[in-house]
């Protein structure tokens, strides 16, 4: 494998990681809720594609449906569960964790514990300047970049984003100025979930889908948020780059296990040195 392909693969992983982290961070930023079921939403996205491939509908139907289904599920979860726990914010992490256990076990019961493969939807290679690269991976990078850019646009340039930032700054003040915070929470939770579902769907053809893959993305995504700083959207770009880049570079030289150990130790040291994240500002206290 040439160095250019390695770098492209690394970039691929980083972008998907940022996508997963993005869904987490918009929910956390707005609602202070850490959605522990986020990894399982990713899983559901991947298994939607597995299901549609099995049923003969093909990859693309699943790709379209995954974010819609998972987004809907997120909305239901917010309305039924998370909303009851706003006054006990630490318990939302437990409740969403319970949800993650139920979803994961549900997947095991329906699809079995073993890994399942999805037929690659775009098998052809693209050759450019002497490097041939799978076109599907380029497609993933395009999708990830588009969604990341769209999320930035949504939160920084639209009226919805202005309202959301007002809720982040001071929910009570925002509510008294006429912003429907309830609906904003619902939309955000659903949006964050949908992004996780989309990320899962895009990754499904690249890896064997097993019920534990959600955790494998949730933990690095969470570390990326910690490393980059949760206070700004830009932080996760840096965090995702650091965590994903280091993970890929080290596992290509040594092994994935060594990479995990090093990345994790690195993350802990960064957390110790800069608790507010690489990009984060000092806490105002």
């Amino acid at each position: 494998m040439s160095a250019a392909v390695q770098i492209l693969n690394g970039l691929n992983y980083i972008l998907v990681l940022i996508l997963v982290a993005m869904g987490l961070v918009i929910i956390f930023g707005l609602m202070n809720v850490i959605n522990m079921a986020h990894g399982e939403f990713f899983l559901l996205g991947a298994y939607t594609v597995v299901l549609t491939s099995k049923m003969g509908l093909g990859f693309w139907v699943g790709f379209i449906f995954a974010p819609i289904l998972v987004g809907l599920l997120g909305a239901i979860l917010e309305a039924v569960l998370v909303r009851r726990l706003y006054h006990r914010i630490l318990d939302t992490i437990l409740a969403t964790w319970g949800v993650s256990i139920v979803i994961k076990q549900g997947i095991i019961l329906t699809f079995g514990p073993e890994g399942l493969m999805v037929k690659p939807p775009m098998p052809e290679m693209v050759t450019f300047a002497g490097i041939s690269y799978p076109s599907y991976r380029l497609f993933i990078m395009g999708v990830a970049l588009f969604v990341i850019a769209a999320t930035f646009y949504l939160f920084l340039k639209t009226d919805f984003g202005l309202g959301a930032r007002a809720v982040i700054a001071n929910p009570n003040m925002a509510a008294s100025l006429g912003i429907n915070t309830r609906r904003m929470y619902l939309t955000t939770f659903s949006l964050g979930s949908a992004i996780a579902g989309l990320a899962g769907a895009t990754m499904a053809p690249l890896m064997s889908c097993d019920p534990h893959m959600g955790l494998g993305f949730f933990i690095p995504a969470f570390l990326a948020i910690l490393v980059g700083g949760a206070s700004s959207l830009g932080g996760i770009l840096v965090g995702g780059g650091v965590i994903g880049g280091a993970q890929n570079a080290i596992s290509s030289v040594y092994s994935p296990v060594v990479a995990q150990i090093v990345v994790f130790s690195l993350a802990i040291i960064i957390i110790r040195m800069r608790p507010e994240g690489i990009l984060g500002r000092k806490a105002r206290d």
Binding site: L85, R88, D91, L94, A95, V102, Q105, G106
Partner: peptide
Amino acid sequence: EYWVLIIGFIFLLSVIFFP
């Protein structure tokens, strides 16, 4: 395999109703 599913549900309910 249903055991984990059931205990997950009970856990979920206890978080909401019996903290």
